[in-house]
Design a binder for these strands. Sequence first.
DNA 1: CCAACATAGGCAAACGTTTGCCTATTCCTG
DNA 2: CAGGAATAGGCAAACGTTTGCCTATGTTGG
Lengths: 339, 339
Amino acid sequence: MSRFVTLKDVAEKAGTTVGTVSYVLNDKKGRYISDELRRRVLDAASELNYIKCNGASSLKGMNRKLIGILIPQFENQFFTRICLAAEEVFVKHGYDLIICDTFDDPERENAIIRRLISQRVDGIIITPTAKGAENTQLIRDVGMNMVVVDRPLEGLEAYHWVTTDNYGCGYEGGAYLRECGHRKIVYIGWKSGIADLDSRETGLRNASAPDAEIYSYYADFSPEAGFDITDKAIEEHPDATAVFFGFNIQAKGGVNVFRKRGLRIGEDISVILIGSPEWAYTGNNDFAHLDMEELDLGRKAARLLLDLIMNGSAEPNRVIQDCVLIEGSSVRKIKKEER
Amino acid sequence: MSRFVTLKDVAEKAGTTVGTVSYVLNDKKGRYISDELRRRVLDAASELNYIKCNGASSLKGMNRKLIGILIPQFENQFFTRICLAAEEVFVKHGYDLIICDTFDDPERENAIIRRLISQRVDGIIITPTAKGAENTQLIRDVGMNMVVVDRPLEGLEAYHWVTTDNYGCGYEGGAYLRECGHRKIVYIGWKSGIADLDSRETGLRNASAPDAEIYSYYADFSPEAGFDITDKAIEEHPDATAVFFGFNIQAKGGVNVFRKRGLRIGEDISVILIGSPEWAYTGNNDFAHLDMEELDLGRKAARLLLDLIMNGSAEPNRVIQDCVLIEGSSVRKIKKEER
DNA sequence: CCAACATAGGCAAACGTTTGCCTATTCCTG
DNA sequence: CAGGAATAGGCAAACGTTTGCCTATGTTGG
């Protein structure tokens, strides 16, 4: 890697000193520079294609213009959408984004956090793993700005958090199924170890009719696990009229069970899920689902972090966003007389 | 942001000097350090939670341990999968990834490249926009390592490129449709201004029967444009038996046209697409498609870049990967007597 | 007993910026 | 015309690392 053009190179070419070049290029006011010299410097810089070394400026206490973001799954559109929205906001303010996938592995999360601090990022957005409270201790220790998105830091109180109403997701979905007359429901979920996520199931149960039966099954956070557990659930409860997927990643595998078993979705079996993966409403698919508006989540988190960076710290902030029920033909309305 | 712990802090606590601490922490050989002092330094470092400042080391010519990757669409799983695979490889070697979305906008691409150089990343992976050859000039000027993935740098010869056989994708798909007896085919494409991408259509045409008719339509690179153009194409060619989508992003919108028009996919109309978005094979969907194995693409690009970084430059390398036809019920086999 | 080597670690010069502190003109204004 | 303000720009000290160059003790073989 040849060698980068430095302030010194520019200064030499323009016949002045590095200090002056720095003043010119940063367009600092409170410093008198003749138009002529300014021109010479600017010309030299653009002729040499000078690009400042952000690492060196950050040594002097300037912002790195770098943000780190940790998500637990890159293959999950829910999270890539958060990143997408966040990136748009950050780029507009001249910040770059280091996007890291923790694969929901606490150890990996810890390592990534160390590396990001090592990069001296200006702030971190994180969807923590189950060990997030512990792992983010380091971030708080060094006083780095942080915004938590989606999942909480269990056991902690004072931090900035942008999230969806998980209980509400479960409740809204449950109420919809109830309205449509379903009272034998399979719930497919993930034992995340994160109470807030578990409240999706609670919401469903609280919204259901008193005489309804909810058959809960739990599996790993993957499409494959989703497929297997759904297959098992359907096998054991052929009488269930609906399946409620608490997590779109499991649903992605789970919904393929029905095709395999020759069950027509929306007729033989009703299906609803939390989240808005694109497969849910593309082609032949028209799944009822609970939209968490993750683009908004990402935007809000990014704006909050920028605010922290620019205005110093603020009161710990909690933003909870409502979800939106999107109806779909995957849920059958059971007629009164059938019940 | 309080103040980070520096080598100096560690040195003071351990009762030695920064130089020595640096030697200990980097575990340099060729330097004699007593076990006792080593322990003191290590203890001090871990007690103070010392994390090295990568920016400062990079000033001294060390690697930043930072890679930049530019993709044109974050919402396109084809690209996020490339990132996912690349990240796995890089992280294993201690590198962080700055992922940037150009939104297929050449100006944005240019700005991002400047910012990445400003961050002094150790290398860049890029899927260029139509103006990529121009915009990457800067990268080549400063001698930064670069691997191009998917699309080429039009007009340039000597660069490292990992890609799919685009012509082959078109050809394989066309041959499949021909086998199944289709000879009136709508092609939905994107006038990218990139010859290599346009060769998808050429492949389709070359694979089709001599008496086949291909009705080509072009639109912007978005689901919405895909929907509109597909609607128009079907309107104008109700006799077509199959639709070939050259780009999954357009297909995502386009496939919704059939539902709207009451056409049963795989019966009234056959559909095939290039790419493997998850919606294509989830739930009720079972679309024939051409898998470009983007995970492999990402892995190969990452490994090539790492190689360049570690072993200095190499001969410009070109890796072209075959695509794989995945059959699906979305394509009807037209019986002999119907033809 | 002394040269030669091994062991142990301090010192300071970079790396590329930013910025406070100077100095030296020129220009008013009373 | 003296002196303060405005204009213009050089100089050098940081920022946190890395590393080459020293010095100062042992330790050993001849």
